[in-house]
Structures are given as structure tokens and as C-alpha cells.
């Protein structure tokens, strides 16, 4: 018994999962899915001025089977979406997804019939990074946010199971043209008190 008490003084017990999370957090391997100008900004983030290697994420794998962080940078057209879904499904679990920029996150200016209005209607997204394109600082913020999600043991969005689009996006799926068109009825938010 005395030995066990002595042991407690210099041995800490923890979960092996914490160690695994720590290793995952500091060795994210991004898979850049760059289709537009956000990819240029992503290159700037990986270059020496912003240096993704400081976060252990400098190993860009262009094979989804070797990466665990999908960075969707750029517009995704409806024809491109099956390709993106295939790439996403090829990535091994656990996997995280960053939706970088306005186009990938919500369609941005391109509210057209060819463009997916937000990739979160098809694949689960962990972190959204707004901007057109986002500054490298914003992308670094997004990667730090993913790291924090891993660190706190928050399950990735991919762990929520098969995705149903109506669960993902609720109010933002309305067309942005709708409020301007008086013929289209839309529910008004409740009046704000004060002001």
C-alpha cells in the first residue's frame, strides 16, 4: 500500500485518447481541394510568410487516402460535387473539413443554377472560414479552430453519421434574392425591442 501511495507522487494517469488527440492535432495533413482563387490564398498560407509548418500541417497530400483535413477552397459546381463527395469518402476517419471562402461556404456571389450553394448541403463541414478570399490569417484561425476541436475531444462533423441536407442548413438556404422580391412571401423575424 505504501508503494502505491509513493507511486501516485510521480505517476499521472490519463487516457490514451488524449495522447492520440494531441498527436492528431499537431500533425493534420491537409488535402487541398482548390478550385478557385481561395487556393491561391491557401498557397500563401503554406508559404514561408505564414508557414503552416508551425501548426504541423505543412504536409499537403494530394491523395485523400493519406490526409485527414479537407480544405475546400473555391467554387464547387454541381458537376464537381460528386467528385468532392468521392474524395471526402475516400479519406480515412477521423476527418475534418474546412469550408474556405464565401463560395464554398454559401455560394457567395454566384447564386446561379450551376453552383452548389454551400458544400454543407452534401458533406459535413467542421469549420467555416468567411472571406473572398479569406486572408491567410483567417485560414490559420480556421486550422487552429480545427485543432481546438480535436483537443477538446469534440467529435468531428463526419461522426454525425449520414448527412441529411435539411439538418445541416436551415435558415440560410433561402435564396438571397427572396427578400427583395415582394412577390415571394417570407417570414419576417420578430421585431427587436429597443432602438
Amino acid at each position: 500500500m505504501a508503494f502505491v501511495e509513493e507511486l501516485n507522487e510521480f505517476v499521472y494517469t490519463t487516457r490514451i485518447g488524449r495522447l492520440v488527440d494531441w498527436a492528431r492535432k499537431n500533425s493534420l495533413w491537409p488535402m487541398p481541394f482548390g478550385t478557385a482563387c481561395c487556393a491561391i490564398e491557401f498557397m500563401a498560407t503554406a508559404a514561408s510568410k505564414y508557414d503552416l509548418a508551425r501548426f504541423g500541417a505543412e504536409v499537403l497530400r494530394f491523395s485523400p487516402r493519406q490526409s485527414d483535413l479537407l480544405i475546400v477552397a473555391g467554387r464547387v459546381s454541381i458537376k464537381m460535387m460528386p467528385v468532392l463527395i468521392r474524395i471526402y469518402e475516400q479519406m480515412p476517419e477521423p476527418k475534418w473539413v474546412i469550408s474556405m471562402g464565401a463560395c464554398a461556404s454559401s455560394g457567395g456571389v454566384f447564386d446561379t443554377y450551376t453552383l452548389v450553394q454551400g458544400i454543407d448541403q452534401f458533406i459535413p463541414v467542421d469549420v467555416y472560414v468567411p472571406g473572398c478570399p479569406p486572408r491567410p490569417e483567417n485560414l490559420i484561425d480556421g486550422i487552429i479552430r480545427v485543432q481546438r476541436r480535436i483537443e477538446t475531444g469534440e467529435s468531428p462533423a463526419s461522426a454525425l453519421g449520414p448527412l441529411r441536407a435539411e439538418q445541416r442548413c436551415t435558415e440560410n438556404r433561402r435564396s438571397p434574392w427572396a427578400p427583395l422580391d415582394p412577390r415571394v412571401p417570407h417570414a419576417l423575424p420578430p421585431a427587436t425591442p429597443g432602438l
Binding site: Y128, P134, R168
Partner: peptide, 14 residues
Amino acid sequence: FYPVGTRREEFVWT
């Protein structure tokens, strides 16, 4: 800088 977020509803600024 604009902040990052994890849900789409966070980005509608009132």
C-alpha cells in the same frame, strides 16, 4: 478580421 465559426447560423450578424 472576420471570425471563423463552426455553424452557418453564427455568421448572420444582426
